[in-house]
Design a protein around this nucleic acid. Sequence first.
DNA 1: GCCTGTGAAGCTATTCACAGCT
DNA 2: AGCTGTGAATAGCTTCACAGGC
Lengths: 220, 220
Amino acid sequence: MPHRNHLSDKVIGRLSLYRRMLERADNGGPEPEHIFSHELAAMAGSTAALVRRDLMSIGFSGSPKRGYDVRELVGCINDFLDAPDGQRAVLAGVGNLGRALLAHFTFRRPKLPIVAAFDVDPNLTGRVVQGCHCFAVSELREKVEELHAEVGIVTVPASVAQGVAEEMVRGGVKGIMNFSPVALRVPGSVFVENMDLTMAFEKVAFFAWQHNHQKKEVAS
Amino acid sequence: MPHRNHLSDKVIGRLSLYRRMLERADNGGPEPEHIFSHELAAMAGSTAALVRRDLMSIGFSGSPKRGYDVRELVGCINDFLDAPDGQRAVLAGVGNLGRALLAHFTFRRPKLPIVAAFDVDPNLTGRVVQGCHCFAVSELREKVEELHAEVGIVTVPASVAQGVAEEMVRGGVKGIMNFSPVALRVPGSVFVENMDLTMAFEKVAFFAWQHNHQKKEVAS
DNA sequence: GCCTGTGAAGCTATTCACAGCT
DNA sequence: AGCTGTGAATAGCTTCACAGGC
């Protein structure tokens, strides 16, 4: 098995996507047992060459005649992406977005449950939101340690995001999904994925606008 | 003013981020009137060289002595990113995530309001959710046209995402923020930004895991 | 001395293109 | 005939490094 470490961010993301596409195909419809790179590419919005390279990078091979064995491929991606004993995530900031993410993730992947949520609002502590127990933010570090959580989701306001991230890291979190518009300062060994919704929204708006005017301006 | 068209995706995203950082700095604290590239870089989680290049790309100059004039820079980014007459967005899929996004965006940028939401649930149509009117999905195309909306947000289940996107495009939408795990097939002139939450979550989990084992495996 | 603006270098990611297989 | 696996080419993005200015 090739070293997991040298694989880029983007490859990992696409592998996760491929897996989801394959699982979906696996359930509905005629359930083909084999799939060609160009078919998977179409499902994932990628290209055939890129799919082949990605699968090559995890050491998976297909046959020129039949393509890739779906069942085997899913298994191979599972082995590659998932920690054998599963991982636990925690979420800080049970506002609208936090709640939506709890609903979205809580029962998706059994290998990767959100095991606790945190908020400053005293009305929330002790309650169960979307199937997930809420605690006070003051208990964050302690609970993360206790639950051996490795993944943190930050959906708190910008003003407290850095503090929350630090507590997570102190508790042992090694990867953070950050929805706050703050550049978190964490040790280099902690992976941070920034999910800046406002940035993405403004970007879409910009290109929507530009494409509108493209016909006039493309002349340059 | 340099042509907006040649600017990449990533540059646009960072400009949006810089603007938000500057506006925040503009409000709280000592309100410095000037800022150096390395300061802005620290706020945005970028590098000084990249900040300078990004600002260069929109034709903005600073002075070596004082850095960049904050007020002027914000104005320049505004002129660059914002459509002069504003833009309107619509959202399809008023579930947990849709509601959270409505709450998040509705009153943020006056130049970019979400002017309508759509859902199949008849209990929602006619109601106002997070300050936004809800309509039936069947009215989507018509309303988009009527409101001259250029931006669409897709938070519907995967099974109906493609259909919703097509209706949006037919109504005149030119940019889509897609939260469904589906590779939308739209005309090349329509910009699509995929926000795959599950993919991002799994990616963070993967690197959280790998970093855990890094000390042992880095030996290779 | 410390900054900006920027050509050039260095990386990384993607696509091309084709040999080899079935 | 059409696919996979992959070296080589290309394209795109970021950093380097330094001239020029205050």
